[in-house]
Amino acid sequence: MTKSELPYLSAKNIVKDFGENRVLDDVSIDIHSGDVISVIGPSGAGKSTFLRCINLLETPTTGVLSIGDFQISIGEGHKKAGKKELSTLRRNAGMVFQSFNLFPHLTVLENIALAQRRVLGRDKEEARTRSMELLDRVGLKDKADQYPGRCSGGQQQRVAIARSLALDPKVMLFDEPTSALDPEVGAEILAVMRELADDGMTMMVVTHEMSFAKEVGDRVYVMVDGRIVESGPPAQVMSEPEHPRTKQFLSAVLGR
């Protein structure tokens, strides 16, 4: 697979303060089209916060973000992102949440179709067809007219993945997608994610599932205390870590 020269997604010098607390301390990352990036590290390291800065669900205190053609500098003296810009950004960066966040008052099909109609402007028929395709892809075609409340956790997360894919995003962001699921169920989700990766989707995954990081990712980033302390190919980072904090973290989660 050929990768383009310029990174598709680039975050530079992201700093995030919550009051006195510096949660992200000058974090930078470059992701090329087709890359699958895993972000691992101890709880509280800022992994989720960093992910949420990418699609501006959290606004960094300072930093530069660029996705595709869209670029924004954040901080003193810079304009805040406008509604249209945010919409474009989020259309291209799909997000899957730890707690699924499906809309409980809409059927599974309507969950997937809503943003297609309102954000992409697809008409009802088109949205419906595309939604059914995606449901089929995640193996839930027969659940189309069910409400999320009637679906198991694993099924809900698969619907959530289909919902994000429906906008044809260029990047998919996963925020601990399996943490709220039983291990067996989590494995199903990881399998879906693996397929997505194999199909060439650009993905950034914050996870505690070391198997995924090791086997599926192109690169692994280790975050500790708001900083990236180590990064590289999984084989290297996870088998022969260099940074002392990485070693500490990995030895604590050995066996997963």
């Binding site: 669900l57 509604k83 919409s87 799909g94 309102r118 954000v119």
Partner: peptide
């Protein structure tokens, strides 16, 4: 729940939508 608004924003839905 807050997660609902986040999921809607993350999908690119405008504030009004």
């Amino acid at each position: 729940p807050r997660g609902q608004l986040e999921a809607a924003s993350a999908a690119g839905l405008s504030g009004i939508d």
